[in-house]
Deep mutational scan, measured.
Amino acid sequence: TFEVERIVRKKIVHGNTSYLVKWKNYSSKDNTWETEDDIRTKYGDLVDDFEK
């Protein structure tokens, strides 16, 4: 199971928000862009903290 360590960046393309996710126990080269809906479902607190 993958676990988010932190959110690195945010991008908005054509009105759709995605977050660059750093995965726990993986290197930064393994970071992936994930949709806001996918990340918010399980890691809403991390998204809220990133947006502060």
Score class of each variant (00 low, 15 high):
Thr41Ala: 14
Thr17Pro: 06
Gly15Leu: 04
Asp37Cys: 11
Asn16Met: 14
Asp48Ile: 08
Val47Lys: 02
Asp30Asn: 14
Arg6Leu: 09
Asp37Gln: 13
Lys11Gln: 08
Asn25Ser: 09
Gly44Leu: 09
Gly15Val: 01
Arg40Thr: 06
Thr35Val: 09
Asn25Trp: 08
Asn25Lys: 07
Asp49Cys: 09
Val47Ala: 07
Phe2Trp: 14
Glu36His: 05
Asn25Asp: 12
Glu34Gln: 09
Thr1Ser: 14
Arg6Pro: 02
Lys22Cys: 07
Gly15Phe: 03
Glu51Phe: 05
Thr35Glu: 10
Gly44Ile: 06
Asp37Lys: 14
Lys10Ala: 05
Leu20Lys: 02
His14Leu: 11
Gly44Glu: 08
Val8Pro: 03
Val21Ala: 01
Lys29Gly: 09
Asp38Asn: 12
Thr1Lys: 14
Val13Thr: 09
Lys10Cys: 09
Lys11Gly: 05
Val13Pro: 01
Thr41His: 11
Ile7Gln: 00
Leu20Phe: 08
Arg6Met: 15
Ser28Leu: 07
Val8Ile: 14
Glu36Gln: 06
Tyr26Gly: 12
Gly44Tyr: 08
Tyr26Trp: 07
Glu3Phe: 05
Tyr26Thr: 14
Tyr43Ile: 04
Phe50Cys: 03
Val4Lys: 01
Gly44Phe: 10
Asp49Ile: 13
Thr32Ala: 03
His14Tyr: 09
Asp48Tyr: 07
Lys24Glu: 04
Glu51His: 05
Val13Gly: 04
Ser27Ala: 09
Asp48Phe: 07
Tyr26Ile: 12
Glu36Trp: 06
Val13Leu: 10
Asn25Gly: 15
Glu5Met: 03
Lys24Val: 08
Gly44Gln: 13
Glu34Ala: 07
Phe2Lys: 15
Tyr19Leu: 01
Glu3Gln: 08
Thr35Arg: 12
Arg9Leu: 10
Ile7Phe: 01
Asp37Arg: 11
His14Ile: 05
Tyr19Phe: 08
Phe50Gln: 02
Tyr26Asn: 10
His14Met: 13
Asn16Gln: 15
Thr32Lys: 03
Ser18Trp: 15
Glu51Gln: 05
Val47Phe: 05
Ile39Asp: 01
Asp30Ile: 10
Arg40Gln: 04
Leu46Trp: 07
Thr17Trp: 06
Arg6Tyr: 14
Lys29Ala: 13
Glu51Asp: 06
Phe50Arg: 01
Lys24Cys: 08
Glu36Asn: 03
Val47Ser: 02
Arg40Lys: 10
Ile39Asn: 02
Asp30Pro: 07
Ser18Phe: 15
Arg9Lys: 12
Phe2Met: 15
Arg6Ser: 12
His14Ser: 11
Glu5Ser: 03
Lys42Asp: 09
Ile7Thr: 02
Lys52Gln: 11
Asp48Glu: 12
Val21Lys: 01
Tyr26Leu: 15
Arg9Pro: 00
Ile7Val: 06
Asp30Gly: 10
Ile7Glu: 00
Lys24Tyr: 08
Lys42Pro: 03
Tyr26Lys: 15
Phe2Asp: 11
Asn16Cys: 14
Thr1Pro: 13
Thr41Arg: 13
Lys24Phe: 08
Thr35His: 10
Glu34Trp: 11
Ser18Gln: 14
Asp49Asn: 10
Lys10Tyr: 04
Thr1Gln: 14
Ser18Arg: 10
Tyr19Thr: 00
Trp33Leu: 01
Trp33Cys: 06
Gly15Trp: 02
Arg9Ser: 14
Ile7Arg: 00
Lys29Ser: 12
Arg6Val: 11
Glu3His: 05
Arg40Val: 08
Asp49Leu: 14
Glu34Asn: 03
Asn31Gly: 05
Lys10Met: 05
Tyr19Met: 02
Asp48Arg: 11
Asp45Tyr: 14
Val4His: 02
Phe2Leu: 15
Tyr43Ser: 05
Arg40Trp: 05
Asp37Asn: 12
Phe50Lys: 03
Val21Ser: 00
Asp45Asn: 12
Asp37Gly: 08
Val21Met: 02
Trp33Gly: 00
Asp37His: 13
Asp48Cys: 06
Tyr43Cys: 07
Asn16Leu: 14
Val4Leu: 09
Ile7Pro: 00
Ile12Ala: 04
Leu46Ser: 03
Ser27Trp: 06
Ile12Ser: 08
Glu34Tyr: 10
Lys22Asp: 03
Val4Asp: 01
Thr1Ile: 14
Leu46Ala: 06
Lys10Gln: 04
Phe50Ala: 02
Ile39Lys: 00
Thr41Trp: 10
Arg6Gln: 13
Thr17Ile: 13
Phe50Tyr: 10
Asn31Asp: 09
Asn25Ala: 06
Asp38Cys: 15
Val47Gln: 03
Arg9Phe: 07
Trp33His: 01
Val4Pro: 14
Phe2Pro: 14
Ile12Val: 13
Val8Phe: 04
Asn31Arg: 05
Ser18Ile: 15
Glu34Ser: 04
Thr17Val: 14
Ile12Cys: 13
Glu5His: 03
Arg40Ser: 04
Lys22Trp: 04
Asn31Cys: 15
Ser27Gln: 13
Glu51Asn: 09
Lys52Arg: 13
His14Trp: 08
Val8Met: 09
Asp45Ile: 09
Thr17Gly: 04
Thr1Asn: 13
Trp33Ala: 02
Trp23Asp: 02
Val4Trp: 02
Thr32Met: 02
Phe50Asn: 02
Arg6Gly: 07
Asp30His: 15
Asn16Ala: 12
Asn25Val: 05
Leu46Asp: 03
Lys22Tyr: 04
Gly15Arg: 03
Lys24His: 07
Thr1Met: 14
Ile12Gln: 07
Asp38Glu: 12
Arg6Asn: 08
Glu51Ser: 02
Leu46Tyr: 05
Asp45Trp: 13
Asn16Pro: 00
Val21Gly: 00
Asp49Gln: 12
Gly44Cys: 05
Leu20Ile: 00
Ile7Met: 01
Tyr19Lys: 00
Trp23Lys: 02
